[in-house]
């Protein structure tokens, strides 16, 4: 029957997935980056690359956001802030690590004030490599994440292998 709980569940899930895929709002946090990735993320939002066509909007508050976009290695002072921003986000939440530093600590691996890469602090759902990644690469990474959202699965990314930076 049309009113069975299963059917209502299905409809509700369908609507939320549709809404989530079409308006994934992001929040951006720089936990020790050099700005390179940050300006590329910002460039992705502006008319030339126009990521808003996927319904993506940069939000100021973690409570409005679905995706946390992280850049840079995690410094000791920023670690607690990063966790706090993540905790404030509503479920389901996703984390995208942008740039080499976010993936492996990059050129800053081993510095005294660096805790490590983002994976050591938060579970990461997508990695976008590059120093910094081009806006096209950022769009590509985000679209891959959106495809997973559409299927209702959580991506299982493999962190790119890195050499020994020390």
């Amino acid at each position: 029957m049309i009113t069975t709980p299963n059917f209502i569940n299905k409809v509700v899930t369908g609507i939320t997935t549709w809404a989530r895929v079409n308006s994934p709002w992001i929040i951006h946090f720089n936990s020790g980056s050099c700005n390179g990735c940050d300006i590329e993320i910002l460039a992705t939002l502006t008319p030339y690359y126009d990521i808003e066509r996927f319904g993506i909007k940069l939000k100021g508050s973690p409570r409005h956001a679905d995706i946390l976009v992280c850049t840079g290695p995690v410094t000791r002072q920023a670690r607690e802030r990063l966790l706090r921003v993540y905790e404030q986000m509503p479920e389901p939440k996703f984390v995208v690590a942008v740039g080499s530093c976010g993936i492996s600590g990059g050129t800053f691996a081993g510095c005294y004030n660096v805790v490590g890469h983002i994976d050591e602090v938060l579970p990461v759902d997508a990695y976008i490599p590059g120093c910094p990644p081009r806006p096209e690469a950022i769009i590509d990474g985000v679209v891959k994440l959106l495809n997973h959202l559409k299927e209702g699965t959580r991506p299982q990314p493999i962190r790119p292998e890195i050499g020994d930076h020390a």
């Binding site: 020790g32 290695p73 410094t75 002072q77 802030r81 800053f108 005294y112």
Partner: peptide, 10 residues
Amino acid sequence: GYVHRGIEKA
């Protein structure tokens, strides 16, 4: 200090 990485030492 949120973005301090310790570059001078590095």
